[in-house]
Design a protein around this nucleic acid. Structure first.
Lengths: 143, 143
DNA sequence: TGATTTTACCCCACTTTTCCCCACTTTATC
DNA sequence: GATAAAGTGGGGAAAAGTGGGGTAAAATCA
């Protein structure tokens, strides 16, 4: 299980150090994909396989599914960690997540989320907590 | 599995460099076909055989199927990669996909899609308009 | 058929990018 | 404070991408 939040930087060669706590679970390589909310996800190979298998079974004759398949696989990358535990983040994914310099990496159960620090700040939970409607929503789930 | 998105150019001799990540899976040659959505597909020889068998098995009594079969095989080409890992894209397929200079090559599971950069940009823009529909779909498959 | 033009393709050369490796800095641990 | 682990930066070799020349094959036309 991936837990905790870390501050990172991406360097001029577009490399990001995967927090050491996450490395053992990934075993030297991982799948980097486009996530919701303009962040990126890191999945273990196993979890990615599960999703990929489901998606690959969709009919190509459906235009919406074609678009979806293209978007999903076109924005997924197999990343091998280098000697220093870093992965390279490709251009298309950097652009999607507005990644330039400062990052926030956060464990989210079965995946790791990678955020641009600025984007994360905008989405910050504290901001949403100010909205009383959100706590109302949580109350429905007894949280 | 074909993954990721790459920027390419087609040169004056109508050659396109196949992204290095895709070359091993293709093994020196590939099938280039007309795809849906005004892009081209690259299949491995094996996957093309599967696709071709399915299409050839469509009932010839149906005029729509006859036309589809004609269109599919008439716009398929066996391409051998040259010493630099490039393939030549024939005129009929260039025209279909509006290919002039800049390309986007994207992995889509069992095939590679080749897009004119302009066409892809238009397509992506159109997709943003109906994005909510798309993200709903993503939600069904994400874990 | 033979001459001329066009196209294909093999090969070489140059530029850009990638990635492996080493070294230094910072943070954590005892 | 000492030691180890994690994070960061960068050099340099190798690979990938790009352009183009030259020759052979194919197509076109007289």
């Amino acid at each position: 299980m991936f837990l905790g939040t870390y501050q990172n930087k991406i360097d001029d060669k577009n490399r990001m150090a995967v927090p050491a706590k996450f490395r053992d679970q990934l075993g030297g390589k991982c799948m980097l994909t486009k996530g919701f909310d303009e962040c990126l996800y890191i999945y273990t190979m196993e979890d990615f396989e599960v999703m990929a298998a489901k998606i690959a079974a969709l009919p190509q004759s459906d235009a919406d599914f074609r678009e979806f398949i293209r978007d999903f696989f076109g924005n997924s990358e197999l990343c091998e960690l280098d000697g220093q535990g870093r992965i390279k983040i490709p251009q298309n994914l950097r652009e999607y997540a507005h990644i330039t310099k400062d990052l926030v990496t956060t464990g989210a159960m079965n995946k790791v989320e990678i955020w641009s620090a600025e984007t994360k700040a905008d989405f910050d939970l504290a901001k949403k907590m100010k909205d009383s409607k959100f706590t109302d929503k949580l109350r429905e789930f007894s949280i």
